[in-house]
Design a protein around this nucleic acid. Structure first.
Length: 465
RNA sequence: GUGGAUGUAGCUCAGUCGGUUAGAGCACCAGAUUGUGGUUCUGGGGGUCGCCGGUUCGAGCCCGGUCUUCCACCCCA
C-alpha cells in the first residue's frame, strides 16, 4: 500500500450498513431483556480522567489503557515546573500528568462506579442500570479481540441480595437464547471459595497466583498447572493439597458437597459455598425448569478466575460450545468498588455481554435473521423530470403511510435504477412513466419474482402496508 | 511486552530458475438492450508489487532494515 492511502488504527473497524443491521439486532435483543428485568439505561463519556481509571484493573490492565495526549506544550510546562520547584525531576512518572490527564474508558464498570458516587443523591437504591457503549483497550488484536469493542453491561448497586446474581443468570440465558444460541455454558465461581482454598493450604497471600494458574487447567492440563504453581511459589505439598480442588468432578451439588468437606476449616469458604447454594435455590424457585433446558448449562467451576482486582463474591463467565471463541460474557460481585471514589459500604454486582464476539459467533453459525436486512421497501423509478414531479407527492404519501420509500434521484437508465434496487435489496419498484401517468394506474414490480402488477395508488398502498 | 508468519488491482489470490509491456476471479463502469435488475456475452478503467536501502547487466522474486496485518503467549470481552 502506498503511504497516501487511508487506513484504520490497529484493531478498529468500520461497520457498513449490512453490518449495522446485524449489530443493532444484537443490541436491541440484549437491551430489551435488560429492560424487561427492570434495568435503566445510562451513558457515560468516552473519556474519563486518567486518575479515575488507573489502579482499578491491576498492572496489566493499566498498561492497556489508552491515554489521551494533553493539548499544549508539555515540554515547556516541565521546564517551568523545574524552575519553580527544585524537587521536580524529569522522569516518565513525573512527566505523565503533564502529558496526559484523560483516557478512553477501559470498561463500563469503573465509569459506572464513578457515576454512582457523583450522582448518589439523585439515585434511589438499589439502582439497576444498563449501559451499551464502546470501550478501548491497547492490546494486540487477534481473533475475537479488538482495540475498540462494545460491552453491554447490567449492574445493580446497593443490594446485597443474591437474587441479583440469580437474575443475571436468567438474563444471560434469555438474551443468548433469544439470539439463537443453542448450546452455551454459564460458569459460576465465588471469590470467597478461592480465598478459602488459599487459606486452607496456608498461602492466603498467593490467592491471585493460585487462581491465575488453575484458571489455565482446560488449556494446559493438570501437569501444566502443577508446573505453573511451582513457578509461582507453591511447594509440592501445597500443590498436592490443591489437587482435589482443581480436579473437582461431578454435578454442581456433588462439587458443593465435596468442597464443604474439603474446606470445612475455612469460614470464608463456607460463606462462598452458601452463597452459591442460595443462588441455585433462587433459580429453582424462580424457574423450576431451569436445569431441564439443554441449551444453557450452569456449571460450578472452581478454576474460573476473572478480574480478581475487584470481584469479591460470585464470578461469572459465559462460553458458547458451538464455536471456538473466548468468553462472550462475564461479571461478578464487587463489594467496594465505589469505595475507591469515597463512597463506602455500597455493594454492587454486574455482568457484561461482549457484543463483538457474539457478532462473530452468530456470523459463524449463520444465526442472523434474513428479514432484518430490509430497509427501503419500495423504490419509485425516475424516467424524466415530468415523472419525477408526478412521483413526489406519491413519495410523500407512501412515507405518511409509514412505508419506507425512496425516489431514484435522477432519471438514469432504468437498468441502473433496477440494479440499484437490487443491490439495496429493495423488494418493490414502482415503474412510473408516460403510460402510467396517462392512465393513473401504476406498475409495481416485485423484485424477487420479477412479476409486475398494475394497481391504483390506493391499491398499491394497502398492498405494501 | 515476548515469539512466529504475512504484505502483488477495491476484495480474494496466481506469478516458474532473477529476464520483454505483472496476471486471474470477484467487484466497478460502459455496450449488446432509448421502459426492466439479479443470468449471459463483449469491451473498459484500475498497480510506486507495503516502504527504504543493497546485490545484479537486469529484482514482484535474492539480502538487510523498517512498517503493517494476522496467529500464538501474557492478559482479556
Amino acid at each position: 500500500m502506498s503511504s497516501n492511502k487511508p487506513s484504520l488504527p490497529k484493531g478498529t473497524r468500520d461497520f457498513s450498513p449490512s453490518e449495522m443491521v446485524k449489530r443493532n439486532y444484537i443490541f436491541d435483543t440484549i437491551k430489551s431483556v435488560f429492560r424487561k428485568y427492570g434495568y435503566q439505561e445510562i451513558q457515560t463519556p468516552s473519556m474519563e480522567n486518567l486518575s479515575t481509571l488507573t489502579g482499578k484493573y491491576g498492572d496489566e490492565g493499566d498498561k492497556l489503557i489508552f491515554k489521551i495526549l494533553n493539548s499544549g506544550d508539555f515540554w515547556a510546562e516541565a521546564d517551568k515546573r523545574q524552575q519553580n520547584d527544585s524537587t521536580f525531576s524529569v522522569n516518565s512518572r513525573s512527566l505523565l500528568p503533564l502529558l496526559s490527564e484523560k483516557a478512553l474508558r477501559y470498561d463500563l464498570t469503573v465509569p459506572f462506579a464513578r457515576y454512582v458516587v457523583m450522582h448518589q443523591n439523585e439515585i434511589s437504591f438499589p439502582f439497576k442500570r444498563f449501559q451499551v457503549q464502546p470501550v478501548w483497550r491497547a492490546d494486540r488484536p487477534q481473533k475475537g479481540r479488538y482495540r475498540e469493542f462494545y460491552q453491554c453491561d447490567v449492574d445493580v448497586v446497593g443490594s446485597e441480595s443474591l437474587l441479583n446474581e440469580a437474575e443475571f443468570i436468567l438474563v444471560y440465558k434469555e438474551a443468548l437464547s433469544n439470539l439463537g444460541l443453542k448450546d452455551f455454558t454459564i460458569k459460576i465461581n465465588n471469590r470467597k471459595i478461592l480465598a478459602g482454598i488459599a487459606e486452607v493450604i496456608g498461602k492466603p497471600e498467593l490467592i491471585v497466583d493460585m487462581t491465575v494458574a488453575i484458571d489455565k487447567l482446560d488449556k494446559i492440563g493438570f501437569e501444566g498447572v502443577v508446573k505453573e504453581l511451582g513457578e509461582r511459589g507453591f511447594s509440592s505439598d501445597e500443590i498436592e493439597a490443591l489437587r482435589p480442588a482443581i480436579l473437582l468432578q461431578g454435578t454442581n451439588e456433588q462439587k458443593l458437597s465435596d468442597l464443604r468437606t474439603m474446606l470445612a476449616g475455612s469460614e470464608i469458604a463456607m460463606k462462598g459455598i452458601e452463597e452459591i447454594e442460595t443462588i441455585f435455590e433462587y433459580l429453582r424457585n424462580i424457574c423450576p425448569s431451569f436445569y431441564e433446558e439443554t441449551q444453557c448449562k450452569l456449571e460450578l467451576d472452581i478454576t474460573l478466575a476473572r478480574g480478581l482486582n475487584y470481584y469479591t463474591g460470585a464470578i461469572f463467565e459465559v462460553k458458547t460450545n458451538e464455536v471456538a471463541m473466548g468468553s462472550i460474557g462475564g461479571g461478578g460481585r464487587y463489594d467496594d468498588l465505589t469505595g475507591m471514589f469515597g463512597l463506602k459500604g455500597l455493594t454492587g454486582a454486574g455482568i457484561s455481554f461482549g457484543a463483538d464476539r457474539i457478532y462473530d459467533v452468530l456470523e459463524e453459525l449463520n444465526l442472523f435473521p434474513s428479514d432484518q436486512t430490509i430497509g427501503t421497501k419500495v423504490l419509485i423509478s425516475n424516467f424524466d423530470t415530468e415523472s419525477e414531479r408526478y412521483a413526489l407527492p406519491l413519495l410523500n404519501l407512501l412515507r405518511q403511510a409509514n412505508i419506507s420509500a425512496e425516489l431514484y434521484p435522477s432519471s438514469a437508465k432504468i437498468k441502473k435504477q433496477l440494479s440499484y434496487a437490487d443491490s439495496k435489496r429493495i423488494p418493490y419498484v414502482i415503474l412510473l412513466g408516460s403510460q402510467e401517468m396517462e392512465s393513473g394506474i401504476l406498475t409495481l414490480k416485485n423484485m424477487e419474482t420479477g412479476e409486475q402488477t398494475s394497481l391504483s395508488f390506493e391499491q398499491l398502498l394497502s398492498y405494501l402496508k
